[in-house]
Every structure is written in C-alpha cells, then in structure tokens.
Design a protein around this nucleic acid. Structure first.
Lengths: 178, 178
DNA sequence: GAAGTGATGTGACTTGGTAACATCACCATA
DNA sequence: TATGGTGATGTTACCAAGTCACATCACTTC
C-alpha cells in the first residue's frame, strides 16, 4: 500500500502499472492480486475492519439509546481508529481519488457498504425502515464530510471532534428542511 | 445496449466479451468503445439526459418553492421519462447489476452524480449547504427506492406515483428521527 | 467534382486480471 | 531426524478490456 501510494503520487495513477507497485514492494504481480482484488483496492483496503468497528459499537450501545445516539457512538468508535499520524495518508489519498473516476466509483460503493452495515446493525436493535437507513446514511455522510476537513493539513482538530460537530450541523439542517 | 442486455441475461455478464456484444450489434469492438467508456457503461448510458431533466426542472421551479418542493418537481420531470414500456428493461437490469460488484460501483457513482447535479441546481436557487445536498440526496433516495418497486413486474403504479409516495414516507420518517 | 467531416473498420499493442503448477519456509508429529 | 501438511510466494502462460494510429467509406458543402 505504501509503495502504491508513493508511485501514484510520483507518476500518477494511470502511469503506474501493477508490476511497478509489486516490484517496489519486493513482490510479484500475482502476489499483489492475492492481497488486493484489483489495482484500485490497494487504496481502499481495510474496510472490513471499519465495518466491524461500526457494527460492534452499535451492538454495544445501551438499550434505550435512540437510533441517532447509537450511530453517534458508532462514529466515535470508527473515528478513534484514525489517529493523527494517519492524517497525511488521508491528505495524499484524496487528490488521487478525486482525479480518477474509477477510484470515485470504488469510493462511492465503499461508502454505501458502510451505511448498509450500520443499517443492518440498527435493524438488529429493532429499528425499522426507513428510520434505520436514514440514520445510518446521515452518520456516514457526517463521517465523510468530516474526513474531508480532517485530511486538510491546516485542520488541527481530531476526526472524532469534526465528525460530532458535522453530525450536529446536519441534524439541525434536517430539522429545518420543511 | 439491447445486444448487451440480451447477451448478459443469456450467458452472464462475465462470460460475455465486448467482441460478442459488438458482433451481435453488427459492429466492432473499437466502435463499441467509441460509444461507451467501458463494458459497464453499456448498462448505464444516458445519464446526461437524466441530469438535464432534473436540473431543468429545478431551474424552472417557482421562486417561492421550498427546496423539497423543487426536488419533488424535479423528480416528477425525471420519472415522467420512465414510461411503462421501459419497465421490463429495468426488471432485467436489476439482477445483472445486483450480481456484480463492478456494476454496483458504477451504479453508486451514478447515483451520487445525480444528487450532486441536483445539489448544484439548488445552489443556483440560493439554497445553502447542507440544506441543498440533504434535500437532493433525500430526493434521489426516494427515486431509487421507488425504482426498485417499479421494476418489479407485479407493481402496477407509475414510477411517478411510487416516487412521490416514497418521498413522503421518507419525510415523515425524518421528522421522527430525534 | 473536390475537399471536408464524421462514423466505422483494421490491426497491433499495453496492461489488468486469472489460472496452473512449482517452490520454499515453517510447523507438527511419528 | 524424518515425514508430511500448510500457507505464502514465484513462474509462466493466457485471456480480455481498453487504446492508438491509420485506412475506409458515406455524405455533405461549396
């Protein structure tokens, strides 16, 4: 993953072949594809871990918690995994993804899968549709909006703080929608 | 597009090569790629048209209309394009997409682009963030949920009716979120 | 009728991605 | 110590997606 991100920023995503990535990592193309489904995935791996963070936190939320409270707890658990030393990785990742449609596609689906996982976890708590998915999508949206701010090197706050604040803003904007 | 959908349902998406699609359409692989960015796109073409329907309708909405009213008008314009004779196309499309991650990715991005276009159109009306994008995303979600129902051959209602009803349900669920 | 234009075909090429088989390190147990 | 199993990697060959340069052909326009 490090080799890939280096090469992508050095030469661009398109100009980098999987063979080059594997070479720099001291491996072979075949081995690369044993670890990543395709060339894109090297930038998005580790999703299962994130999903587990979200769903475990929702499972562990206190019984009387409202859907949004459970989502908020899940986001706390999720964002705690993004320590400040990872901020620059996010910063280098963002422009690469922004410049390539195929990467945006992967990103869009990953996002949807995160929301879906959280939706399912809410269902297990007895939250019905469409409440569950609306709460989940709102939470994921807050996370992504906050991530964008966090990836900016100028930002000093933690991802957790930014996500909480963003979720609050979205909630008040929602209340004023009608 | 017809040739591709036929072959996909006959032999499966993976087992169908672009050469086969082009052959059945009486064309060449090269010509295929002049019309579609890649193999997936043959199932998703025509998005520009849909975007124009949405944005034109929002531009044309009366000045005092609220964001959600403008979105609702846009959805009416959009869904009017899906006449009942297209219902079976949607029905055949759905399982193919559901069975292939690469197609779900494309679908997820298309959906995001529709919401983005509507968001921009709302900005032009003076609607600010995050109200604009929340209204747009809610509308697109209503459209996709309704489309799923509409693609079911058992359903007898028009896509416009289904979308209006779904949007209403989402709004009431939102109001009860807190 | 000549020149321009747009859509298509041809053939060669790169690279992402897969599959079959071989190798090697490591570990367990007889 | 030897034997065999297991998991990760390498080797090789292959297929199909996608690109490119060039040729062709129909059709328009002056």
């Amino acid at each position: 993953m490090r080799a890939a991100l280096e090469l992508f920023t050095e030469q661009g995503y398109d100009a980098t072949t999987v063979n080059e990535i594997a070479d720099r990592a001291g491996l072979t193309k075949t081995t690369f594809f044993r670890h990543f489904r395709d060339k894109r995935e090297v930038l998005f791996a580790g999703q299962d871990t994130l999903i587990r963070l979200l769903t475990d936190a929702i499972d562990a939320a206190p019984g009387p918690a409202t859907p949004l409270e459970a989502v908020s707890a899940a986001l706390d658990a999720l964002t705690a995994a993004f320590t400040d030393d990872r901020r620059d990785v996010g910063a280098r990742l963002r422009p690469v993804i922004a410049g390539h449609t195929e990467l945006q596609e992967r990103s869009a689906l990953k996002r949807a899968k995160l929301a879906e996982a959280m939706t399912d976890a809410l269902h297990k708590r007895g939250v019905s549709e469409p409440t569950a998915s609306l709460a989940a999508e709102l939470g994921i949206r807050a996370f992504y909006d906050a991530f964008d701010q966090w990836a900016d090197p100028a930002s000093k706050r933690t991802l957790t703080e930014l996500t909480r604040r963003t979720l609050d803003e979205l909630r008040t904007a929602l209340a004023a929608l009608d």
